[in-house]
């Protein structure tokens, strides 16, 4: 393997890795406030991409993406308000089953609205064949968009959670829900906010990645599995670890093409998921003690 090919694989790996990381962060945000895995997370990514494609028919690209993200955030809020909010101390299992149900529902509705066809947004800058060359390594400008937007998103989320009042309130809710309520924080609103946030970042990720990977009504499921693997790999609830784990999985997958047929790419992530669940369920960066205290 020559050095150019190596970097080409690396760039591809990092691209997919950042998307996995963003989906995983979506899982983590909801996990932190509710203690459940929202299996409809992948559907937010699909909805974002699909809505943006539809809106782009009559709106300029930036506005179409912005509106798509907004619409998905509203859908996220509606889902939480209709299906989760009114439940009085539901069990974790019940909430997980509900999110699986929501994911199937959203997928079927998407099939009715958009059909089974494959869609994609145009490349944000340049075309499918344009490339930025660094030495003999050629990078599609869209790859830079994906990595750039994801990086900005992670930084913004970090600032949000560290310095803003709603961010701190959400962290308080995940640290100790009852104590947060005793501080006057409305925990239910925080759960809604967490759905809105993860719907938003999922949708934005769906938009930037759609020129490369395309979107389809059932495209969310595959991403959700990858994102879930990454979230577990990093340690549930830890967003920074999710970034590291996402890049790791993306790069592993991309280099696996070198030794195995492309069709086996997904085997890597599923094997890692199984391995980590058997050997180290707290994740690479999670603490074992903390994992024992978790209900899930």
């Amino acid at each position: 393997m020559n050095i150019e090919l190596f970097f080409q694989y690396l760039v591809a790996g990092v691209t997919y890795g950042t998307i996995y990381a963003i989906v995983a962060i979506g899982f983590n945000i909801i996990y932190n406030t509710t203690g459940i895995i929202n299996f409809a997370q992948g559907e937010f990514v699909m909805l974002g991409g699909m809505t943006a494609v539809t809106l782009h028919a009559f709106l300029p690209l930036p506005i179409a993406i912005l509106s798509a993200v907004m619409i998905t955030m509203v859908i996220g809020a509606l889902i939480e308000i209709t299906f989760i909010r009114w439940l009085i101390s539901p069990s974790v299992l019940r909430m997980i089953i509900i999110t699986i149900g929501i994911s199937i529902l959203v997928r079927e509705i998407a099939l009715h609205i958009w059909g089974a066809g494959v869609k994609a947004l145009p490349y944000f800058s340049g075309t499918a064949v344009s490339a930025i060359s660094i030495g003999d390594v050629h990078i599609s400008p869209q790859v830079l968009w994906v990595i750039g937007v994801s990086a900005v998103m992670v930084i913004c989320l970090n600032l949000f959670f560290t310095y803003t009042l709603p961010g701190r309130q959400m962290r308080a809710c995940s640290a100790n829900r009852d104590a947060a309520r005793l501080c006057g924080i409305n925990a239910k609103n925080m759960v809604t906010l967490s759905f809105v946030l993860s719907a938003g970042i999922g949708a934005l990720a769906g938009c930037v990645v759609s020129p490369i990977t395309y979107v389809q009504y059932d495209g969310g499921t595959a991403l959700a599995i990858k994102g879930f693997t990454v979230a577990i790999l990093g340690g549930l609830g830890n967003s920074m670890a999710a970034v590291a784990a996402g890049l790791l999985l993306g790069i592993l997958e991309s280099f696996s093409i070198w030794v195995m047929p492309t069709a086996y790419k997904d085997v890597i992530s599923i094997s890692i998921l199984l391995l980590i669940l058997f050997v180290r369920p707290s994740g690479l960066f999670g603490s074992k003690e903390a994992a024992q205290l978790k209900e899930f």
């Binding site: 009042l165 104590a179 947060a180 309520r181 005793l182 501080c183």
Partner: peptide
């Protein structure tokens, strides 16, 4: 709590993953 009746719960229940200052500022919410 908003009406002015606060509880210091049993077993302390601080926000353990947050700094002392953040804990206090959340109290002032």
């Amino acid at each position: 709590v908003f009406m002015g009746c606060s509880l210091v719960p049993e077993g302390r229940q601080v926000f353990s993953t947050m700094s002392v200052k953040e804990n206090l500022l959340l109290g002032a919410y």
